[in-house]
């Protein structure tokens, strides 16, 4: 069975996607998944060619038929999601599709429409297959979309007898993060030596622990505040999780991103060297 590795961070912008793309370049026999469906960026480094695209249907949205609506006002106060506007139109973004207004409207003026919440794709890239998605703007249920594309990737991995599923995870600790973590073989938490980085990594670590996921840490831009890096390492020691790499601040990384490349393809440099070592250490742990 393919090993599933997810890269997460709690806090955004710590270098998650850059690392994921590098693992994509380094691993053999793999498939990539971008589970940050809300702000997907991995495709910018993988130059995918979309092979198949699929609608992601999820949930329903209430619609009021203005011809039937008597403006009786029943629906307005009962909606707990502030989705019924005073002019008796439903605010699409706010409607959670619970259907209460539909059930309760005395004039049968409301119906529930199925919602197209996004799209997902299977693509070819320079490094192999890639499953990614675009959540429609202002949509919910990103957790379900994440679960969907992970399942697709897992099926493809089985069919093609691949060794790795490499997952770029979303920021935060909510629904999509939980969906990204479930059942993985390793969660790599990428953090930075800042108080907020430590705070957020600590929270996402709690989530991973909650679901019994094996965790490893990487500190990115560790030299921007060596004392804080020390604190993160101390935190990891007390928690019994390994820090398997420390990457120095390096503007080459930004240049590589601007060129649309992973750092391992872009240049021979200390960062590239450290990233290789991190990948080896992940493998040793599997």
């Amino acid at each position: 069975m393919a090993k599933q590795i997810v890269v997460i961070s709690g806090k955004g912008g710590t270098g998650k996607t850059v690392l994921t793309a590098s693992f994509a370049a380094l691993a053999k026999n793999k498939i990539m998944v971008d589970c940050d469906v809300d702000a997907a960026d991995l495709h910018l480094l993988l130059s995918p060619v979309v092979k198949t695209r699929h609608e992601f249907r999820s949930g329903r949205t209430a619609v009021i038929d203005m011809k039937k609506c008597q403006k009786c006002g029943t629906c307005l106060p009962i909606c707990r999601f502030e989705a019924v506007r005073p002019d008796f139109r439903i605010e699409h973004f706010s409607c959670e599709g619970c259907g209460l207004c539909f059930h309760i409207c005395p004039h049968g003026a409301i119906h529930m429409d199925e919602n197209v919440a996004g799209e997902w794709f299977v693509s070819d890239t320079k490094f192999g297959s890639f499953v990614h998605a675009k959540l429609g703007v202002a949509e919910e249920n990103s957790g379900k979309l994440v679960a969907k594309i992970r399942q697709i990737a897992k099926e493809l991995a089985e069919k093609q007898a691949l060794d790795y599923v490499i997952i770029d995870g979303p920021p935060g600790i909510g629904c999509p993060v939980i969906a990204s973590l479930s059942g993985v073989d390793c969660a790599l938490i990428v953090t930075e030596p800042t108080l907020s980085g430590l705070h957020d990594a600590g929270r996402v670590f709690e989530v991973a622990k909650h679901f019994n996921i094996p965790v490893k840490f990487v500190v990115n831009k560790y030299d921007l505040n060596p004392a804080m890096t020390e604190r993160i390492e101390e935190f990891c020691r007390t928690q019994g999780v390994p820090v398997i790499g420390k990457i120095a601040f390096d503007t080459t990384v930004v240049q590589a991103v601007v060129e649309g490349k992973s750092i391992v393809e872009y240049a021979k440099c200390p960062t590239e060297n450290e990233v290789r070592k991190i990948w080896e250490r992940i493998n040793r742990g599997l």
Binding site: L44, F93, V137, E139
Partner: peptide, 29 residues
């Protein structure tokens, strides 16, 4: 961060929204 439900819930009703970004392909996207 992001563009889904939690963000909408947070920014809805604002008089103005400041969007913070960085000058990279990720930031622009």
């Amino acid at each position: 961060p992001g563009t889904s439900c939690p963000v909408i819930t947070a920014v809805k009703g604002s008089d103005f929204c400041v969007l913070v970004t960085e000058p990279t392909p990720f930031g622009l996207n």
